[in-house]
Protein backbone atom coordinates (compact mmCIF):
# COMPACT_ATOMS: atom_id res chain seq x y z
CA UNK A 1 0.00 0.00 0.00
CA UNK A 2 2.69 2.38 -1.06
CA UNK A 3 1.42 5.81 -1.81
CA UNK A 4 0.13 6.23 -5.28
CA UNK A 5 2.35 7.59 -7.98
CA UNK A 6 1.37 10.98 -9.03
CA UNK A 7 2.99 11.68 -12.34
CA UNK A 8 0.14 13.42 -14.05
CA UNK A 9 -0.63 15.81 -11.27
CA UNK A 10 -2.58 18.81 -12.24
CA UNK A 11 -0.89 22.06 -11.46
CA UNK A 12 -1.67 23.09 -7.97
CA UNK A 13 -0.91 19.86 -6.29
CA UNK A 14 1.83 20.60 -3.92
CA UNK A 15 5.36 19.42 -4.38
CA UNK A 16 5.17 18.11 -0.86
CA UNK A 17 2.34 15.82 -1.65
CA UNK A 18 4.29 14.45 -4.61
CA UNK A 19 7.32 13.87 -2.43
CA UNK A 20 5.20 12.08 0.14
CA UNK A 21 3.83 9.75 -2.49
CA UNK A 22 7.20 9.07 -4.01
CA UNK A 23 8.71 8.33 -0.64
CA UNK A 24 5.97 5.89 0.26
CA UNK A 25 6.21 4.25 -3.15
CA UNK A 26 9.96 3.92 -2.84
CA UNK A 27 9.59 2.34 0.59
CA UNK A 28 7.06 -0.12 -0.72
CA UNK A 29 9.17 -1.02 -3.71
CA UNK A 30 12.23 -1.48 -1.52
CA UNK A 31 10.37 -3.76 0.84
CA UNK A 32 8.86 -5.88 -1.94
CA UNK A 33 12.18 -6.22 -3.75
CA UNK A 34 14.19 -7.12 -0.70
CA UNK A 35 11.51 -9.59 0.40
CA UNK A 36 12.44 -11.54 -2.72
CA UNK A 37 16.13 -11.55 -1.83
CA UNK A 38 16.23 -15.33 -1.20
CA UNK A 39 15.48 -15.83 -4.89
CA UNK A 40 19.03 -14.68 -5.64
CA UNK A 41 20.12 -18.13 -4.55
CA UNK A 42 17.67 -19.83 -6.86
CA UNK A 43 19.47 -22.35 -9.01
CA UNK A 44 17.97 -21.78 -12.43
CA UNK A 45 20.37 -24.01 -14.33
CA UNK A 46 17.83 -26.78 -14.76
CA UNK A 47 14.96 -24.48 -15.62
CA UNK A 48 15.24 -24.15 -19.35
CA UNK A 49 12.74 -22.88 -21.85
CA UNK A 50 12.74 -26.25 -23.59
CA UNK A 51 12.02 -27.93 -20.29
CA UNK A 52 9.22 -25.51 -19.60
CA UNK A 53 7.65 -26.14 -22.99
CA UNK A 54 8.19 -29.90 -22.92
CA UNK A 55 4.95 -31.75 -23.45
CA UNK A 56 3.43 -34.63 -21.53
CA UNK A 57 5.23 -37.92 -22.06
CA UNK A 58 2.27 -39.41 -23.91
CA UNK A 59 1.97 -36.42 -26.22
CA UNK A 60 5.58 -36.14 -27.26
CA UNK A 61 6.45 -37.21 -30.78
CA UNK A 62 9.44 -39.57 -31.07
CA UNK A 63 11.58 -36.62 -32.16
CA UNK A 64 10.47 -34.50 -29.23
CA UNK A 65 11.15 -37.37 -26.87
CA UNK A 66 14.63 -37.82 -28.31
CA UNK A 67 15.29 -34.14 -27.90
CA UNK A 68 14.02 -34.26 -24.31
CA UNK A 69 16.19 -37.29 -23.56
CA UNK A 70 19.24 -35.58 -25.00
CA UNK A 71 18.58 -32.46 -23.00
CA UNK A 72 18.03 -34.38 -19.76
CA UNK A 73 21.13 -36.49 -20.36
CA UNK A 74 23.15 -33.35 -20.86
CA UNK A 75 21.82 -31.84 -17.64
CA UNK A 76 22.66 -35.04 -15.77
CA UNK A 77 26.15 -35.07 -17.23
CA UNK A 78 26.68 -31.47 -16.30
CA UNK A 79 25.61 -31.99 -12.75
CA UNK A 80 26.99 -35.42 -11.97
CA UNK A 81 29.87 -35.65 -14.44
CA UNK A 82 28.68 -39.03 -15.65
CA UNK A 83 27.49 -39.66 -19.15
CA UNK A 84 24.17 -41.45 -18.58
CA UNK A 85 22.75 -44.04 -20.85
CA UNK A 86 19.36 -42.40 -20.83
CA UNK A 87 16.64 -43.97 -22.93
CA UNK A 88 12.94 -44.56 -23.01
CA UNK A 89 11.90 -48.17 -22.54
CA UNK A 90 8.43 -49.13 -23.69
CA UNK A 91 6.34 -51.94 -22.20
CA UNK A 92 6.68 -55.34 -23.83
CA UNK A 93 3.74 -56.96 -25.57
CA UNK A 94 1.98 -59.71 -23.69
CA UNK A 95 3.62 -58.87 -20.40
CA UNK A 96 2.00 -57.85 -17.16
CA UNK A 97 4.39 -57.75 -14.28
CA UNK A 98 3.69 -59.21 -10.89
CA UNK A 99 5.68 -59.48 -7.72
CA UNK A 100 5.43 -62.08 -4.97
CA UNK A 101 7.15 -61.90 -1.64
CA UNK A 102 7.67 -64.85 0.65
CA UNK A 103 7.24 -63.59 4.20
CA UNK A 104 8.49 -66.89 5.59
CA UNK A 105 11.84 -66.20 4.02
CA UNK A 106 12.38 -62.48 4.52
CA UNK A 107 14.95 -61.85 7.24
CA UNK A 108 14.64 -58.07 7.37
CA UNK A 109 18.21 -57.30 6.31
CA UNK A 110 17.12 -54.19 4.37
CA UNK A 111 19.42 -55.03 1.49
CA UNK A 112 16.51 -54.50 -0.90
CA UNK A 113 15.99 -51.00 0.49
CA UNK A 114 19.53 -49.91 -0.15
CA UNK A 115 19.99 -51.77 -3.42
CA UNK A 116 16.91 -49.92 -4.63
CA UNK A 117 18.40 -46.59 -3.55
CA UNK A 118 21.62 -47.35 -5.43
CA UNK A 119 19.88 -48.62 -8.55
CA UNK A 120 17.32 -45.88 -8.82
CA UNK A 121 19.43 -42.82 -8.07
CA UNK A 122 17.37 -41.94 -5.04
CA UNK A 123 18.38 -38.95 -3.00
CA UNK A 124 20.82 -39.89 -0.24
CA UNK A 125 20.21 -36.70 1.65
CA UNK A 126 17.48 -36.05 2.37
CA UNK A 127 16.93 -39.74 2.33
CA UNK A 128 14.39 -41.21 -0.05
CA UNK A 129 13.68 -44.92 -0.01
CA UNK A 130 10.98 -46.74 -1.94
CA UNK A 131 10.94 -49.85 0.22
CA UNK A 132 10.02 -49.85 3.89
CA UNK A 133 10.62 -53.01 5.91
CA UNK A 134 8.39 -53.59 8.90
CA UNK A 135 9.40 -55.80 11.78
CA UNK A 136 6.18 -57.44 12.88
CA UNK A 137 5.41 -59.52 15.93
CA UNK A 138 4.43 -63.04 15.02
CA UNK A 139 0.75 -63.77 15.08
CA UNK A 140 -0.47 -60.56 13.51
CA UNK A 141 -0.32 -58.68 10.27
CA UNK A 142 -1.49 -55.47 11.91
CA UNK A 143 0.94 -52.97 10.49
CA UNK A 144 0.50 -50.65 13.42
CA UNK A 145 2.36 -53.20 15.49
CA UNK A 146 5.23 -53.08 13.04
CA UNK A 147 8.49 -51.38 13.86
CA UNK A 148 9.97 -49.38 11.01
CA UNK A 149 13.18 -48.42 12.76
CA UNK A 150 14.24 -51.76 14.20
CA UNK A 151 17.95 -51.84 14.66
CA UNK A 152 19.19 -55.14 16.00
CA UNK A 153 22.73 -56.38 16.05
CA UNK A 154 21.56 -59.23 13.86
CA UNK A 155 18.40 -60.20 12.04
CA UNK A 156 16.14 -62.10 11.93
CA UNK A 157 14.72 -62.01 15.40
CA UNK A 158 12.98 -65.19 16.45
CA UNK A 159 9.84 -63.44 17.71
CA UNK A 160 9.26 -61.37 14.60
CA UNK A 161 8.70 -61.66 10.93
CA UNK A 162 9.61 -59.01 8.40
CA UNK A 163 7.40 -57.39 5.82
CA UNK A 164 8.86 -55.16 3.11
CA UNK A 165 6.36 -52.79 1.50
CA UNK A 166 6.83 -50.89 -1.73
CA UNK A 167 4.61 -49.70 -4.56
CA UNK A 168 2.04 -52.39 -5.30
CA UNK A 169 1.48 -51.25 -8.90
CA UNK A 170 -2.25 -51.53 -8.36
CA UNK A 171 -4.58 -52.40 -11.18
CA UNK A 172 -7.02 -49.88 -9.71
CA UNK A 173 -4.56 -47.26 -8.52
CA UNK A 174 -6.02 -44.47 -6.37
CA UNK A 175 -2.92 -42.36 -6.97
CA UNK A 176 -3.59 -42.28 -10.70
CA UNK A 177 -7.21 -41.40 -10.18
CA UNK A 178 -6.49 -38.33 -8.07
CA UNK A 179 -3.68 -36.76 -10.07
CA UNK A 180 -5.01 -33.48 -11.45
CA UNK A 181 -2.58 -33.32 -14.37
CA UNK A 182 -2.26 -37.00 -15.36
CA UNK A 183 1.39 -36.97 -14.40
CA UNK A 184 1.07 -40.56 -13.19
CA UNK A 185 -0.61 -43.42 -15.01
CA UNK A 186 -0.71 -47.16 -15.36
CA UNK A 187 1.26 -48.54 -18.30
CA UNK A 188 0.26 -51.57 -20.38
CA UNK A 189 2.52 -53.87 -18.40
CA UNK A 190 0.88 -52.77 -15.16
CA UNK A 191 3.62 -50.48 -13.92
CA UNK A 192 2.37 -47.20 -12.51
CA UNK A 193 4.80 -44.57 -13.73
CA UNK A 194 5.37 -40.87 -13.12
CA UNK A 195 6.44 -38.26 -15.65
CA UNK A 196 8.79 -36.32 -13.39
CA UNK A 197 8.73 -33.47 -15.86
CA UNK A 198 4.98 -33.16 -15.64
CA UNK A 199 4.27 -33.54 -11.91
CA UNK A 200 3.24 -30.29 -10.23
CA UNK A 201 3.97 -31.59 -6.74
CA UNK A 202 0.53 -31.31 -5.15
CA UNK A 203 1.06 -34.58 -3.22
CA UNK A 204 -2.55 -35.64 -3.62
CA UNK A 205 -1.33 -39.04 -4.82
CA UNK A 206 0.75 -39.39 -1.69
CA UNK A 207 -2.38 -38.82 0.39
CA UNK A 208 -4.34 -41.28 -1.72
CA UNK A 209 -1.92 -44.18 -1.61
CA UNK A 210 -3.00 -46.80 0.96
CA UNK A 211 0.46 -48.35 0.97
CA UNK A 212 2.51 -45.24 1.62
CA UNK A 213 4.49 -46.04 -1.48
CA UNK A 214 5.05 -42.55 -2.82
CA UNK A 215 7.83 -40.19 -1.94
CA UNK A 216 8.15 -36.48 -2.43
CA UNK A 217 11.32 -34.52 -3.08
CA UNK A 218 10.97 -31.94 -0.34
CA UNK A 219 14.46 -30.65 -1.13
CA UNK A 220 16.93 -30.83 -3.96
CA UNK A 221 17.97 -34.50 -4.08
CA UNK A 222 21.64 -35.07 -3.28
CA UNK A 223 23.46 -38.02 -4.82
CA UNK A 224 27.25 -38.40 -4.67
CA UNK A 225 28.64 -38.24 -8.19
CA UNK A 226 30.41 -41.57 -7.85
CA UNK A 227 27.18 -43.28 -6.83
CA UNK A 228 25.16 -42.34 -9.89
CA UNK A 229 23.80 -45.30 -11.80
CA UNK A 230 24.20 -44.25 -15.43
CA UNK A 231 21.77 -46.90 -16.69
CA UNK A 232 18.68 -44.71 -16.79
CA UNK A 233 15.32 -44.38 -18.40
CA UNK A 234 12.89 -41.49 -18.68
CA UNK A 235 10.10 -43.01 -16.63
CA UNK A 236 12.21 -44.70 -14.00
CA UNK A 237 15.50 -43.86 -12.41
CA UNK A 238 16.81 -40.69 -14.02
CA UNK A 239 17.61 -38.15 -11.32
CA UNK A 240 14.52 -36.35 -10.11
CA UNK A 241 14.08 -32.68 -9.37
CA UNK A 242 13.06 -30.93 -6.21
CA UNK A 243 9.30 -30.74 -5.78
CA UNK A 244 8.15 -33.85 -7.64
CA UNK A 245 6.89 -37.26 -6.62
CA UNK A 246 8.67 -40.52 -7.19
CA UNK A 247 8.16 -44.14 -6.26
CA UNK A 248 9.00 -47.75 -7.08
CA UNK A 249 8.50 -48.62 -10.76
CA UNK A 250 9.59 -52.26 -10.63
CA UNK A 251 12.94 -51.11 -12.05
CA UNK A 252 11.31 -50.79 -15.45
CA UNK A 253 14.56 -49.89 -17.17
CA UNK A 254 15.77 -53.36 -16.15
CA UNK A 255 12.59 -55.40 -16.18
CA UNK A 256 11.38 -54.20 -19.56
CA UNK A 257 14.64 -55.51 -20.95
CA UNK A 258 14.18 -58.88 -19.30
CA UNK A 259 16.30 -58.34 -16.20
CA UNK A 260 15.09 -58.80 -12.67
CA UNK A 261 14.55 -55.81 -10.38
CA UNK A 262 17.46 -54.70 -8.20
CA UNK A 263 15.64 -55.44 -4.92
CA UNK A 264 15.11 -59.02 -6.03
CA UNK A 265 18.65 -59.61 -7.22
CA UNK A 266 20.13 -58.48 -3.94
CA UNK A 267 17.74 -60.45 -1.73
CA UNK A 268 20.01 -62.94 0.04
CA UNK A 269 17.23 -65.38 0.85
CA UNK A 270 15.23 -65.45 -2.36
CA UNK A 271 12.12 -64.09 -0.71
CA UNK A 272 11.33 -61.95 -3.73
CA UNK A 273 9.83 -63.34 -6.91
CA UNK A 274 9.09 -61.44 -10.06
CA UNK A 275 7.78 -62.21 -13.50
CA UNK A 276 5.10 -62.10 -16.10
CA UNK A 277 1.61 -62.74 -14.76
CA UNK A 278 0.38 -63.53 -18.27
CA UNK A 279 2.89 -66.35 -18.66
CA UNK A 280 1.50 -69.37 -16.78
CA UNK A 281 4.98 -70.87 -16.50
CA UNK A 282 6.59 -67.86 -14.88
CA UNK A 283 7.73 -68.19 -11.28
CA UNK A 284 5.27 -65.59 -10.11
CA UNK A 285 2.33 -67.20 -11.93
CA UNK A 286 3.14 -70.58 -10.44
CA UNK A 287 3.37 -69.08 -6.98
CA UNK A 288 -0.01 -67.42 -7.42
CA UNK A 289 -1.47 -70.75 -8.43
CA UNK A 290 0.10 -72.94 -5.80
CA UNK A 291 0.58 -70.74 -2.75
CA UNK A 292 -1.91 -69.01 -0.52
CA UNK A 293 -1.08 -65.49 -1.50
CA UNK A 294 -2.67 -62.38 -0.10
CA UNK A 295 -2.52 -58.67 -0.78
CA UNK A 296 -2.38 -55.83 1.70
CA UNK A 297 -5.55 -53.90 2.44
CA UNK A 298 -7.63 -55.91 0.03
CA UNK A 299 -10.73 -54.10 1.28
CA UNK A 300 -9.58 -50.86 -0.32
CA UNK A 301 -10.09 -52.45 -3.70
CA UNK A 302 -6.81 -51.37 -5.24
CA UNK A 303 -6.07 -54.76 -6.84
CA UNK A 304 -2.33 -54.80 -6.20
CA UNK A 305 0.11 -56.66 -8.40
CA UNK A 306 2.28 -57.24 -5.36
CA UNK A 307 1.47 -60.42 -3.46
CA UNK A 308 2.61 -61.79 -0.15
CA UNK A 309 2.64 -65.40 0.94
CA UNK A 310 3.93 -67.69 3.63
CA UNK A 311 5.33 -71.15 2.96
CA UNK A 312 2.70 -73.76 3.67
CA UNK A 313 5.02 -75.89 5.78
CA UNK A 314 6.43 -72.93 7.60
CA UNK A 315 6.31 -73.13 11.36
CA UNK A 316 8.67 -70.36 12.11
CA UNK A 317 11.31 -72.51 13.65
CA UNK A 318 13.70 -71.90 10.80
CA UNK A 319 15.00 -68.87 12.54
Amino acid sequence: MSADTQQQQKPGVSRRSFFRGALGAAGGMAAVTTALKPLLEFDTSEYTLEGFLQRHYKEMTPEELDAALARIAEAVEKRYEVRPELRDVKPMDGVEFGYALNLSRCIGCRKCVHACVAENNQSRSPEIQYIRVLEMPRGSIDMEKGDHAYDRPTVPDADHFYMPVQCHQCANPPCVKVCPVEATWSEDDGIVVIDYDWCIGCRYCEAACPYWARRFNFAEPQIPKEDINPDMSYLSNRPRQKGVMEKCHFCLHRTREGKLPACLEVCPVGARKFGNLLDPKSEVSQILRTKHVFVLKEEVGTLPRFFYYFDDDYHGERK
Binding site: R110, K111, V113, E127, A149, D151, R152, V155, P156, P268
Partner: peptide
Protein backbone atom coordinates in the same frame (compact mmCIF):
# COMPACT_ATOMS: atom_id res chain seq x y z
CA UNK B 1 22.44 -65.25 5.86
CA UNK B 2 20.76 -66.65 8.94
CA UNK B 3 22.16 -64.05 11.32
CA UNK B 4 23.35 -60.90 9.67
CA UNK B 5 23.50 -57.31 10.68
CA UNK B 6 20.70 -55.35 9.08
CA UNK B 7 21.53 -52.34 6.94
CA UNK B 8 20.73 -48.91 8.40
CA UNK B 9 17.17 -48.08 9.36
CA UNK B 10 15.33 -45.27 7.63
Amino acid sequence: MSKIEPLPAP
